[in-house]
Design a protein around this nucleic acid. Structure first.
Length: 871
RNA sequence: GCCGGGGUGGCGGAAUUGGCAGACGCUACGGACUUAAAAUCCGUUGGAGGUGUCCCCUCCGUGCGGGUUCGAGUCCCGCCCUCGGCACCA
């Protein structure tokens, strides 16, 4: 055995690192097959770890593959550069958020280059640059003109840690998604985008997104939360007002025994004002205060004890004119429906709990009854009949047949829904209605590092938009101070009213950074436009994005906002498509072991001594798998991996380690396995390359049986790798290439003298070609060593010959009673012939079958023969 | 509670959608090479058992319990566990 050297990846990577840029410059005006590949652009938070790399490595591999298939591939990159971490870092380091951000961007661009990841950097976007955020402001003004941007006082989520408001979407379990502080409620006047206007479309169009993960669609579906019901006006005793409620169960209206108001409901204030007894009023006020307070603190808690307060007032049920007591209840939400509910204890678990606690009447009005039950009575007799007949236990939340419901008694729930709704509608006491959980998008942030909202507050003229000709409203170029944002910079906010020229004040809020990412994919098409956000003609040609890839953590926020923007822009005539992303793939996280000491918290793996002891105190460490993060000190630096094994090894391992959509553990052993494989490929190609100069023409007619097997394997591999890449099964694509490598290695070592050189040459070329999107450095080098002058990135992706997929011989499994008992090798032509297969199988199994009764023979052409015997 | 993933060797994971379970890789063990180690190469690696001519055989085995089928990791019914999303949504 010759001593085998490790390939010199350092030299190779240095040679090709800067070579590929020119192949990925895209002229968006060139016709041809376009392919818009897009990775979610990153927030420039610092140095990237191998977990971040997964997203971009998948993208680079996919883009290279598509390019080889002859597509004009647009694969741009940019930076989501506004946001809070920059401000926090700036405060900590006494610098400007811009300096920190720019430094990180430069570092990340170097990392992309080290990884061999190529983007068309002429199209780079940085959202913190005025030439980008100018258009955020422009869109804002267009939205404002159309009533899609509005200012309203609302109870907002206030994060005391970040000193700013948050969108509903940014509150996780009652805590800030960024800093984890408990979120408070504050009443503030803020800017909103009217995303609810598109609730129905956003929901309905999910159906169009065939190539989105089901999981993501479901999450959006639930988030939008559509429900169909009836809005019902109850009368108010002693008042001409009406009490409006929304219900999805109008069929249970005869079961109403109380009403409940949210503590924030406007009627509550009225009742308080009208209360004649001061002691009673004080009690009611105390209850309301407590409920409001509780709402803030326990938001997100699993279940809170239901509490209520009887207001002493009564409502009138429009269906039967019954008098029902009105309560204030902590479990009724102001933000959903009308902020008031009709209480039906018999058919709603929450109302049941409430009614039980306060001794309210519980009236059954729906009985489970359906044809299935009746059918069972006929066939199964006594016991079942009795069991089915006893009414279901309360609360019964299912549907059924109405009882105790006046003229509607006997109807099914579905019929009653419609009939009762129509009845109320005809009398002007109700109407069919659709409600959504989705709320409008609160975009104001009380921060510095974001897009200034282009509005001016004038004492005389009110709120005045900044004229479009004066955009962008730039962030003031002053030394960065601290937490209160633009409100502490008079140079910024002091201005004159565009209307009356009098003194006025600029809006000091900036926009949520999700505005930046809601349209960046459009800007990439024509990033240097100065007079408009993008070139609509080019955008309509290139969009929707053909393949979008990113983390599942953006399943709701970013993807919903981007869809909303697209629809709003379409309605403004700026684009002509409904959905921005045709295909979506969400990749999983990379995890790594993290070590935690009870005293010294997270310990970096390199510091851990003697197995699992803390280096500071010697205590036993707790070891757990976590996704890589700086805070848990379990990140792996790509720089280190590249120094040891090269960028190709990191890329290959990242793609091979497991299915890309799944979370997966990073292991050093796995990295070494990928490195070994690349060495094997290197040695295989180099051991043959020089011998192949006189290879001659490939002639399949001269193939030996062995040659034919290799040929088949080659074509099978091309087929499965192609299909696997298309479906993002990148791990199996790599393993197929490994199998081919093993087969070729066997072939050239078995009988080195007898190899078919033309076959070897073609096989090695195709091997290097199909491997090149994954490990471009080594493949570019090997391509040259195989005698080619031109770049591998510029080659065409190999295609397979369906003829070659079928071997001349096939192995057929012989089963007896479903168990494999033997095999049969037959020529390809025979493998499809049922009768012949059966004949041969029976003949071969003759000895075993002696004395057995053959009951049946099943033949699956090309696969197996199953002989069913008795006895 | 509701919705959606997922449960396969010591580990990450394959399995043409009903047709040879465990591809590919890792780990571990044995061997070759070496003064030695590393690297590399060869072999073994789901479990149990067997008088087993070297291409050996038998049984068991894909979270659990049933079912359909000639045949089930895959389909159906009923559970368990786990991860993620939503959650007093009327």
């Amino acid at each position: 055995m010759p001593r085998i050297a490790q390939y010199n990846f350092k030299k190779i990577e240095k040679r090709w690192k800067d070579f590929w840029d020119r192949f990925f410059k895209v002229d968006t005006h060139t016709p041809g097959k376009k392919f818009y590949y897009l990775n979610m652009f990153p927030y420039p938070s610092g140095v990237l770890h191998v977990g971040h790399g997964r997203n971009y490595i998948i993208g680079d591999a996919f883009a290279r593959y598509k390019k080889m298939q002859g597509f004009t591939v647009l694969n741009p990159m940019g930076f989501d550069a506004f946001g809070l971490p920059a401000e926090n870092a700036a405060i900590e380091n006494k610098t400007h958020p811009r300096d920190w951000t720019i430094a990180n961007i430069e570092g990340m661009k170097r990392q992309f280059r080290e990884w061999g990841i190529v983007y068309d950097w002429d199209r780079e976007i940085r959202t913190c640059e005025p030439d980008y955020y100018k258009w955020n402001q422009w869109f804002f003004l267009q939205f404002y003109k159309r009533g899609l941007a509005y200012r309203a006082a609302a109870v907002a989520n206030w994060c005391p840690g970040c000193q700013t408001v948050l969108a509903n979407e940014q509150v996780i379990d009652g805590r800030c998604e960024r800093c984890d502080s408990p979120v408070e409620k504050r009443k503030l006047t803020q800017w909103f985008f009217k995303i609810t206007q598109y609730a129905e479309q956003l929901l309905r169009d999910l159906e169009k997104l065939e190539h989105w993960p089901e999981r993501v669609k479901k999450m959006q579906y639930n988030w939008i939360g559509r429900s169909e019901g009836v809005e019902i006006d109850f009368g108010l005793e002693g008042s001409s007002q009406r009490l409006k409620v929304f219900t999805t169960r109008p069929d249970t209206i005869f079961g109403v025994t109380f009403m409940a108001l949210a503590p924030e409901h406007p009627l509550v204030e009225e009742f308080l004002a009208q209360a004649s007894d001061p002691a009673f009023r004080a009690q009611m006020e105390a209850f309301v205060q407590r409920a409001l307070q509780q709402g803030e603190i326990t938001r997100g808690a699993v279940s809170v004890e239901k509490e209520g307060f009887f207001t002493g007032r009564y409502a009138i049920n429009p269906i039967n004119n019954e008098r029902v007591p009105i309560y204030i209840a902590n479990y009724v939400l102001m933000e959903y429906g009308t902020g008031a509910i009709m209480g039906v204890p018999a058919h709603d678990a929450r109302d049941f709990e409430f009614a039980t606690k306060y001794g309210l009447q519980i009236r059954r009005v729906v009985e489970s009854s359906n044809a299935l039950d009746e059918g069972r009575w006929e066939s199964e007799g006594g016991a079942t009949r009795e069991a089915s007949q006893s009414p279901p236990p309360l609360p019964y939340e299912g549907s059924g047949r109405l009882i105790n419901s006046g003229e509607f008694t006997g109807l099914t729930s579905a019929e009653a829904f419609r009939k009762i709704g129509e009845f109320l509608e005809s009398r002007g006491q109700g109407r069919f209605a659709v409600k959504y959980k989705l709320r409008d998008w609160l975009i104001s942030r009380q921060r510095y590092w974001g897009t200034p909202i282009p509005m001016i507050h004038c004492e005389r003229c009110g709120i005045v938009p900044v004229p479009e000709s004066e955009l962008p409203v730039k962030l003031p170029d002053v030394p960065f101070i601290g937490k209160s944002g633009l409100a502490e910079i008079p140079e910024f906010y002091q201005t004159t009213c565009p209307h009356c020229q009098g003194p006025a004040r600029r809006d000091t809020d900036t926009m949520d950074t999700f505005v930046d990412s809601s349209w960046y994919f459009l800007r990439f098409i024509s990033p240097h436009e100065r007079e408009r956000p993008f070139d609509p003609e080019a955008v309509n040609r290139w969009l929707p994005v053909d393949q979008y890839v990113g983390g599942v953590e953006h399943a709701i926020l970013h993807l919903l906002y981007a869809r909303f923007f697209t629809k709003a822009l379409r309605d403004m005539g700026l684009v002509n498509f409904d959905e921005p992303f045709a295909r979506l793939f969400t990749q999983g996280m990379i995890e790594h072991l993290a070590y935690r000491c009870p005293q010294h918290n997270w310990i970096h793996p390199s510091e851990v001594r003697e197995g699992t002891k803390c280096p500071h105190c010697g205590q036993e460490l707790k070891v757990d798998l976590h996704k890589m993060s700086k805070s848990k000190r379990n990140t792996i630096s790509p720089h280190d991996v590249i120094a040891h094994y090269g960028a190709d090894t990191e890329r290959l391992y990242t793609l091979f380690m497991g299915p890309p959509e799944r979370d997966i553990e990073w292991t050093e052993e796995g990295v070494r396995g990928s490195f070994r494989f690349l060495n094997r490929v290197w040695n295989l190609v180099l051991s043959q390359a020089r011998k192949l100069t006189d290879a001659g023409e490939l002639n399949t007619a001269q193939f030996t049986e062995r040659d034919r097997k290799v040929w088949q394997k080659l074509h099978q591999t091309i087929k499965s790798v192609t299909e696997d890449i298309e479906s993002f099964h990148l791990n199996t694509a790599v393993s197929a290439i490994m199998e081919l490598t093993n087969e070729l290695t066997d072939y050239v070592t078995e009988q080195p003298k007898k190899i078919n050189k033309a076959l070897v040459k073609r096989s090695l070329e195709d091997l290097v070609l199909i491997l090149s999107p994954f490990t471009p450095f080594i493949c570019e080098e090997l391509w040259r060593r195989l005698g080619h002058e031109d770049a591998i990135v510029d080659q065409r992706w190999p295609t397979y010959d369906p003829q070659a997929l079928h071997a001349s011989e096939r192995e057929i499994v012989i089963q007896i009673n479903g168990k494999v008992r033997d095999r049969l090798t037959v020529p390809g032509s025979v493998s499809e012939d049922r009768a012949e297969l059966q004949r041969r199988a029976l003949a071969q199994m003759q000895p075993r079958l002696a004395g057995k009764q053959i009951q049946k023979v099943i033949v699956v052409p090309g696969r197996l023969v199953n002989i069913v015997v008795g006895g």
